[in-house]
């Protein structure tokens, strides 16, 4: 059964004005998220993962960036058409976000309790007392030990993992339908990382939250994702469910990523597989396929024309001339 997507992004183009001229950070991005499912957006730094997230949140820096094209449809409405006031009311209420840096993402001069309560006061108009009770409930829900005491503590008194739990408590306070997690575990120890991931999974199951999980860590993707979008230099180059992407990657870049994962069975002195070269600068992109400069199997067609995202199997889309030629 195919359920309707909770949110879909259609032909999204976001650009930034820089001193080198206008740069298109994400170009023609499409994907959708379903309730209770996790969509992972994977790619290297600068591939447009975070810009995609900020576009959905409406948190792009207004003066230097603009969404030039496309739709972001949530609950049947294009949220790009909404007023900034309406979008502000959605943030933290319908769509929430947690960030990479738990150490700095919380306000250092307010207590944990005050920061969680604020969400209830903004979106639910709760009294101070009721908001505080709810904040306490959230701390319990995200598994913070000694929650009564923690409520009156400041962020600097908490460890990184605890702060990320507080961030999750803030993000999920009003039971949003969608949670965007921008590398939420990158700054954490591996053990803490696992705890945070399982917490997110547990809360997702309890509340049916859709999660857009942004990461460059394929190990994390394998643990959390239902569907995967692979981005490269601002474009989606492959998307599909997590098994398709891990078991049967079609794009040479995705294949490269998968083969660069070390296996536990490898010997110590086996060199790691790597993808040669660097991501092209967004201001000097190749005319054809953006990956053509690093691709082993690139031919003249790849250099001259840009491929489009086309379906290979059900739900599995790839943007690669060779993969499509093979299929045909």
């Amino acid at each position: 059964m195919v359920s309707d997507p909770l949110l879909y992004v259609e032909n999204l183009v976001t650009s930034f004005r820089t001193e080198y001229g206008t740069v298109t950070a994400i170009d023609d991005v499409n994907f959708s998220v379903k309730a209770g499912k996790t969509l992972a957006i994977v790619g290297e730094s600068g591939c447009g993962k975070s810009v995609t997230a900020l576009s959905i949140m409406g948190l792009l820096p207004q003066k230097i960036s603009s969404i030039d094209h496309g739709k972001i449809v949530y609950a049947g409405e294009d949220i790009l058409q909404k007023s900034s006031q309406e979008r502000q009311q959605m943030r933290g209420n319908e769509i929430s976000m947690i960030f990479q840096e738990p150490m700095t993402a919380l306000n250092p001069v307010y207590t944990v309790g005050q920061q969680i309560s604020e969400v209830f006061k903004i979106h639910r108009n709760y009294s101070n007392k009721k908001a505080r009770q709810e904040a306490l409930r959230m701390l319990i829900e995200v598994g913070i030990p000694d929650p009564e005491k923690r409520l009156d503590e400041y962020p600097f008194q908490l460890s990184g993992g605890m702060r990320q739990r507080v961030m999750i408590a803030i993000a999920l306070a009003c039971e949003p339908k969608i949670l965007i997690a921008d590398e939420p575990t990158t700054a954490l120890d591996v053990t803490v990382q696992a705890q945070i991931l399982s917490l997110m999974k547990k809360l997702q199951q309890e509340h049916g939250t859709a999660i857009i999980f942004i990461t460059h860590d394929l190990g994390v993707v394998a643990q959390v994702a239902d569907e995967v979008v692979v981005m490269y230099a601002g474009k989606v180059i492959e998307q599909g469910d997590v098994y398709q992407i891990f078991e049967d990657p079609k794009h040479p870049y995705t294949k490269g990523l998968m083969s660069s994962l070390p296996s536990i069975n490898d010997t110590k002195d086996k060199p790691l597989n790597t993808i040669e070269g660097n991501v092209p600068s967004l201001s000097h992109l190749p005319i054809g396929c953006r990956f053509s400069t690093r691709c082993d199997i690139a031919n003249h067609k790849c250099v001259e024309t840009s491929p489009h995202l086309k379906p290979m199997n059900i739900g599995h889309h790839v943007s690669c001339h060779s993969a499509h030629a093979e299929e045909a």
Binding site: Q88, M90, R91, G92, N107
Partner: peptide, 26 residues
């Protein structure tokens, strides 16, 4: 430019409140 301001935006806090409550005390 601080991260906590971005968090406040993500919570849905209004711009005047971010300035007068979150930023002011810092």
């Amino acid at each position: 430019k601080s991260d906590y301001v971005r968090t406040a935006h993500a919570k849905g806090t209004s711009e005047p409140k971010i300035l007068l409550v979150h930023i002011m005390k810092n």
